[in-house]
Design a protein around this nucleic acid. Structure first.
Lengths: 121, 121
DNA sequence: CAAACAGTTGAACAACCATTCAACCGTTAA
DNA sequence: TTAACGGTTGAATGGTTGTTCAACTGTTTG
């Protein structure tokens, strides 16, 4: 009673198929990795932060200009910038009264690019 | 007063630098794309869903076995499976009383792989 | 048919989180 | 020094969301 030619699932769930379960438990990443992974993606899972990342891509921008570009308050943007900072996704440089933000590295661009491909089917 | 050799930011924020802002507004993805992108990442931004994706990678698994592997209730897992289904990240096949889930395609694996690289610095 | 099981679903609850608001810090210019 | 501005921060608020619980569907078996 195989569903696929290979890797036939064997669980009938009346009595849980412990072989499969134990095998999966061994093969899966440990909990801390799973949390790190989902925490990482969580950063991208907000449209404000996503917009900020696009805005500061290439050209550094100060908080006021980011806020004006997104149509948001400085405060709201600053809160999200803090989260992006703590995740090491962006860097900043102070210049007088201004703080200019830009992407930390190209890795971020790569991941968003891959996601964009997927979305466009 | 340039911060970088190239792409010197010109905004002083007393009067917003509208050239930069208007340029960014033109270059940025439209709002629907930004929402689609962040919604996509939102799916991965939960450790339960992330765990499910790893569990059903390679070998199809029924809901009970997934639940047992993760140490969660069938109901909680089923709720998350629904979200993953609606995002077309997973497919399922019914077999008697069981429903076996597996990854929809390799695209998902790629994205998670890229994120794993980034996390490990 | 009836009982048992796999899985789904909706409502309720709790935890989380993004934005707002007000107060604050540091820098610059008068 | 004082006022103005860019930016940050903490508390409060409202909306979102994951899990629980109970009820339900559909399939299999006695």
């Amino acid at each position: 009673m195989s569903i696929y030619e290979k890797n036939a699932p064997t669980c009938e769930c009346e009595e849980l198929h412990n072989e499969v379960i134990e095998k999966k438990k061994r093969e899966m990443p440990d909990l801390s990795t799973l949390y790190d992974l989902s925490d990482f993606f969580k950063i991208f899972g907000d449209s404000t932060r996503m917009s900020i990342l696009f805005a500061i891509d290439g050209e550094p921008m100060c908080v006021c200009d980011i806020a004006a570009t997104l149509g948001m308050t400085k405060s709201a943007v600053s809160h999200q910038l803090k989260i992006l900072r703590q995740s090491d996704l962006i860097t900043y440089r102070k210049s007088g009264k201004n703080v200019f933000y830009t992407l930390a590295d190209d890795h971020v661009r790569d991941i968003i690019e891959k996601a964009l491909e997927h979305i466009k089917e």
